[in-house]
Design a protein around this nucleic acid. Structure first.
Lengths: 341, 341
DNA sequence: TAAAATCGAGAATACGTATACAATGATTTT
DNA sequence: AAAATCATTGTATACGTATTCTCGATTTTA
């Protein structure tokens, strides 16, 4: 592999000129530039990234910290990767739940791994776990830029892009209340997911303000999967209180519940109204069921997060450090007034 | 940030000893080791990754080259990332279809980006495109280890992990033929996906050997999505030849077709048998339809690929350079004999 | 006991790059 | 025309690490 000295020798200039040409071509004369360019082409020279990193302290790598790498997160990643690639940054992934996290447990966090200049910044998709709380703490005095994605933190000044799950919860409740519903069910996703918690909080608060409590027997556990929600629903059906409206963690959960309810002789929207989350058009169209749901700007979450991180990396001022993206309520045929009793 | 010299000074030893302690503790006396260890803890010293890379030529980063980052690929990535993390390797992702590929188009490939010691090796999930063919060519004389995943290449000696899609196609055809079927349909996935092409080839070859041609009007285009397959099927229904057996690119496609067929008054398995691919338990259970399908070892693909790459990186001999993983045929109620005419 | 062999650790150096500093020539100012 | 300014380029050095080389100390062998 050729280095800058080799290029310089062939071009008949000093290695400093080669370096200058590479970092900022305007610093050298057109004549030198041409000679260097030719020499680079001849030798098929490539900049050594590690040497550059050592010298400048900038690696042009950012970390993507995320639990698992499911489809939801991978959609965000794709947006992030594309956005960062435009500016020459690379993405290194860290599974915060993988075997790597065992190492993390020993050293109490992922951060030690990220030390030593290998990472310029990080995008973090945290859960609501103690481990991830600790990681956030350590990111804060890491000394490098970072952005928290999709988890609403009350800490002022912390760079974050969030989706307004709380408002979504309120919207769902408001809509159902306005239709006349008084008896609700809430189907949880994985409780460690911040988004699921925020939706619950919004839903609960809106109901509370209408003097409708949401007791524990009206909360079903779930894991974002249709099959599990179906099984749970079937198994506790006889113990469920009277209900006419259901808000589920996501579309698969909603449809899993629907399947169970249908098998118990109920119909939607005749007997109850149903709202899902994260508009899954594939599933809805395949099912042929007009499920009311929310669409969340997943790609925009990634793009905005990446953009904010890039600004921080460049030292540009980031005006609002917290950006809130809105969900879109998609009203469909699964909504109706409660049946007359 | 402290460096090895600082540690050495505090420990009262030379920096060489510090380095030796870090690379191989057996190279130093227990006494020195203890002193160095203490100094490291005191100064919170971390190895500088870029300096180490510059010196050794090993970055401990591998590239994950993949088109898009959909759920299928992200499952593989998760397995790969976890496996590599165990050995201290990091994964940098490259979207071969993203805006980055525009850069690639200019320079005719992704490889220039991977030069300069930033990547020790690569895992590549190629499509059947000219771009990706070129990338494979260039990987071959890149000089670093690489493994091709999920694309069957006839080139001998090339390191690859493949899933036996061809055999799956044959199995599907064999089963349907043995049930007495004579009139078939094949539903394509995205044609650029090697796996879809292999399945088609196996299916076609098995039929051909039974003297059953699979003409173009018996091949439906698709894109792995239920909604699209549904629309296509409806739109060309009247032009479809008589059929009693259908093999679809994946489960969503199969169910999209099923939905369209049901709306046309057909029933499965009464009127036709149906086989999908990539066992989607969520979808099947939600649909309540016993779809025969194939299960492919996606996680194992990632694990084996990562393991092979690690072996190559360490210089271990890799015995069979081509590992073929088998699919599992899952026979369910969507299979039956053809109806009497 | 002396010479040879082994071992541990310090000194010095190189990896490839970016940049501070010095030096050169060209250009403008007085 | 001489002095001052400026634009370019070359020289030298430092980033932090791994490793070769050297040397002194210890152990082994005849």
């Amino acid at each position: 592999m050729a280095n800058q000295r080799d290029v310089a020798k062939l071009a008949g200039v000093s290695s400093a000129s080669v370096s200058r040409f590479l970092t900022n071509p305007r610093l050298v004369t057109p004549k030198v530039a041409a000679a260097v360019e030719r020499a680079i082409a001849t030798l098929d020279y490539r900049l050594d990234h590690s040497a550059q990193t050592l010298k400048t302290g900038k690696s042009f790598h950012v970390g993507l910290l995320s639990p698992a790498l499911g489809s939801y997160h991978s959609n965000i990643f794709q947006a992030v990767e594309n956005q960062l690639a435009k500016e020459g940054y690379y993405c290194t992934i860290f599974d915060t739940l993988g075997p790597d996290s065992r190492r993390a447990a020993q050293s109490r966090s992922l951060l030690p791994i990220m030390r030593g200049k290998q990472i310029d910044g990080a995008l973090f998709l945290p859960l609501n776990t103690a481990d991830d709380d600790l990681t956030i703490e350590q990111l804060r005095d890491w000394g490098h830029p970072y952005v928290i994605l999709d988890r609403n933190l009350a800490i002022p000044g912390i760079p974050q892009i969030v989706i307004d799950n709380y408002r979504a919860g309120r919207l769902a409740a408001k809509k159902l209340i306005s239709l006349g519903h008084k008896d609700f069910l809430f189907i949880w996703g994985l409780q460690d997911f911040p988004s699921a918690r925020d939706r619950f909080a919004g839903f609960r608060d809106e109901l509370r303000e209408a003097d409708i409590p949401l007791s524990f027997d009206r909360q079903l556990e779930g894991d974002f999967l249709a099959s599990h929600t179906y099984r749970i629903t079937r198994s506790i059906w006889s113990r469920l209180p009277h209900f006419t409206a259901v808000f589920a963690a996501n579309d698969p959960s909603a449809l899993g519940f629907l399947k169970a309810a249908r098998e118990e002789g109920l119909d939607c929207p005749r007997d109850f109204s149903l709202i899902g989350f994260d508009d899954d058009e594939e599933l809805s169209s395949l099912f042929g069921f007009p499920l009311a749901t929310f669409r969340q700007p997943v790609a925009e979450l990634g793009v905005r997060g990446a953009q904010m991180l890039l600004d921080l990396l460049k030292g540009n001022p980031v005006d609002p450090t917290k950006v809130t993206l809105s969900v879109e309520f998609i009203e469909r045929g699964s909504l109706a007034e409660p049946p007359a009793r």
